[in-house]
Simulated assay, not measured.
Amino acid sequence: MSEFLETRQGRRIAYDRLEGAGPGVVFLGGFKSDKEGTKALALEAWCKARGRAFLRFDYSGHGASSGDFLDGAIGDWFEDACAAILGLTEGPQILVGSSMGGWISLLVARAHPEKVAGLVTIAAAPDFTETLWAGLSEVERQGVLEYGRLERPSEYSPEPYIFTRRLIEEGRSRLIFDRPLGLGMPVRMLQGTADADVPVALAMRLLDHMAGPDIRLTLVKGADHRFSTPDCLKLIEATVLKVGNRAA
């Protein structure tokens, strides 16, 4: 059963945690996803089998945590991630960030490098709010400004995804590509070539943008944005193991 962490902003963050050896592993989920997803549970089982510490949690407005999803923004979810990582783990952690979680994991690594032993990103989507805004027509932009939201159909939900004006505007204070990004820890990026949401071009752009002594990108032919097939899950686990060995 999940436990709850009260953040200094007054949000209740639901989490599940395994005690074990370090460096621990922390899973950071994507936009509108929760800690009960396939990748989070598979990684938890993998860590449990190896006696390794593990943490998965829901951002506010997601899953079992408090709050309304439509009230949230990147900065709020970054604060939630920092509260969970700083308050619930011991020592440096390996952050595994999926999609939006890849963006948030990069923000955590930039703000608290002492807590990050290594990074594994899966279809990382840094600055996706700006990419979304740039792709809107003038009519759509006016709609966001006037009504405060934009609806888009999603293959991951029967209901459309809603992107709020606050999400887009607040995201501009959390960008990755607006300044240099130096990362001293090992970084491994995983990316599917059949990802319809995060193109390979974005992964290449992020690879070029990051500076550090140990950064690699792995492309998986045919893998989609979910990156949850048995082979993809095995690759995530093998990558976490390698990063942990390099960080030790």
Rank of each mutant, 00 (worst) to 15 (best):
S2C: 08
E3K: 08
L5W: 07
T7D: 02
R8C: 06
R8F: 11
R8S: 15
Q9H: 15
Q9F: 05
Q9L: 14
R12S: 15
D16I: 03
L18D: 12
P23G: 13
V25A: 10
L28K: 00
K32H: 07
K32A: 09
S33L: 05
D34K: 02
K35D: 03
T38P: 01
K39R: 15
A42Y: 11
L43R: 10
A45K: 07
A49K: 09
R52W: 12
A53N: 07
L55K: 11
D58L: 06
S60L: 07
H62V: 08
H62E: 08
G63F: 06
G63Y: 11
S65L: 02
D68S: 15
D68P: 02
D71K: 14
A73M: 01
G75D: 14
D80V: 12
D80L: 03
A81Q: 06
A81Y: 04
T89H: 07
T89R: 15
E90Q: 14
L95H: 05
G101L: 00
W103Q: 03
W103S: 00
W103C: 01
W103I: 02
S105T: 07
S105R: 01
L107M: 12
R110F: 05
A111S: 14
H112C: 08
E114W: 02
K115H: 14
V116L: 12
A123F: 02
A123E: 02
A124H: 05
T129Q: 12
T131R: 13
G135H: 10
G135V: 03
V139T: 14
V144Y: 12
G148R: 10
G148F: 12
P153E: 14
P153V: 10
S154I: 08
E155L: 11
Y156A: 12
Y156P: 04
Y156S: 02
Y156F: 13
P160S: 09
F163D: 05
T164F: 10
T164C: 04
R166A: 08
E170C: 09
S173V: 05
S173A: 13
L175Y: 01
L175Q: 14
D178G: 05
R179P: 00
G182A: 12
M185Q: 15
P186A: 11
R188C: 02
M189I: 12
L190H: 04
Q191V: 09
G192A: 07
A194V: 04
D195A: 05
A196R: 14
V198L: 05
V200G: 09
V200F: 07
A201I: 10
A201F: 03
L202N: 03
M204H: 15
R205Y: 01
L206V: 09
D208E: 14
A211C: 11
G212I: 11
P213Q: 13
R216Y: 06
T218G: 01
V220A: 04
G222Y: 07
G222K: 05
G222A: 09
A223L: 02
R226N: 06
F227R: 08
S228P: 00
S228L: 06
K234C: 00
K234S: 13
L235A: 03
I236T: 03
A238H: 09
V240C: 12
K242A: 15
K242Q: 15
G244Y: 10
